[in-house]
Computed example of a mutant assay.
Amino acid sequence: MTSSASPGLARFNAADGRAAAELLHDVCASRVWGAAVAAGRPYHRLADLLAASDAAMAALTAADLREAVSGHPPIGRPTPGDPTSAREQRGVGDAERDELLRLNLAYQEAHGHVFLICATGRTGAQMLAALKERIGNSAADEREIVRAELGRINRIRLARRTEEDPA
């Protein structure tokens, strides 16, 4: 069977277990998610990889979700030296940064983890509005919203990493 995998996807498929685990951990801090996605290799199309990511995300327990969220910096404070974090949060301007950080602390107090949102393509004002809307959610409602947001983030990151040219 001829594979239609992109060069980046082919590299991911061919990577040894450690290299694949590292790439997947850079996408999502959940070890369970990473193991499930790695176990599905080889992927012939990006759509297959994304479907496996979605299935793995849907199967995560509350503890697995907490582990996944632990890999994300607060909105408004990208991880220093991390181009992915900076790129994803580039929509946050100085005008929103202080309020995002202040409300993120209140969110953390209420939910036990940072406010998580797929920041790609969103403005600081949109993220601030979402934070204000979600801060009062129940733990169960917020867990499912976080699951969906993580799924979006993982899809974007997987697509970017399997399409990148290492040269």
Rank of each mutant, 00 (worst) to 15 (best):
I153D: 02
P83K: 06
E88D: 12
I153Q: 00
L105K: 14
L131I: 10
L103A: 04
P80G: 00
E96Y: 08
G112A: 05
D98G: 14
A139S: 15
R143F: 11
R147C: 10
L103S: 05
D141K: 12
R77K: 13
R77H: 09
R102F: 06
T120N: 08
R97E: 03
D94L: 14
D82S: 15
G121D: 11
I156V: 12
D165M: 11
E144K: 02
E88P: 11
Y107A: 00
E164H: 11
A148C: 07
E163K: 07
K132R: 15
R143W: 06
N137T: 09
P78D: 00
C118S: 11
N104Y: 03
I156T: 10
G124F: 05
R157Q: 10
N137I: 08
R155T: 12
L116M: 08
G93N: 05
Y107Q: 01
Q89F: 00
R160K: 13
E163N: 13
A140E: 15
Y107C: 04
D98R: 14
D165T: 15
S138L: 11
N104R: 01
Q89P: 06
S85W: 03
F115Q: 03
E144L: 10
D165A: 15
R77S: 14
L158T: 02
D94T: 13
G91P: 05
T120L: 13
H113P: 01
Y107M: 02
V146C: 08
I135C: 07
A106D: 14
P74E: 14
D141P: 00
R97G: 04
V146D: 01
